[in-house]
């Protein structure tokens, strides 16, 4: 499956707010763990290693 990188979010500001809100009150380590859990949940939802490899490569390149 090809990674879909088109803009797909109906309300991008809401997503950003949602992520910030999820981390509110957490210290750095707790935040890191939340992100790790979130990545695992989303990775399972995607369920396709090829797509996940593309996503990881894209994320690494952008940094």
């Amino acid at each position: 499956m090809t990674l879909d990188t088109r803009p797909r979010l109906a309300d991008p500001d809401a997503l950003f707010a949602l992520l910030v809100e999820a981390h509110r009150g957490l210290d750095a380590e707790a935040s890191r763990r939340l992100d790790a859990r979130l990545v695992l949940v989303l990775a399972n939802h995607i369920g396709d290693m090829d797509t996940l490899r593309q996503a990881i490569a894209l994320a690494r390149e952008a940094g």
């Binding site: 380590e29 890191r32 763990r33 992100d35 790790a36 859990r37 990545v39 695992l40």
Partner: peptide
């Protein structure tokens, strides 16, 4: 962090 996240 990932290891602990899996266990949690």
């Amino acid at each position: 962090a990932y290891r602990d996240a899996v266990l949690e």
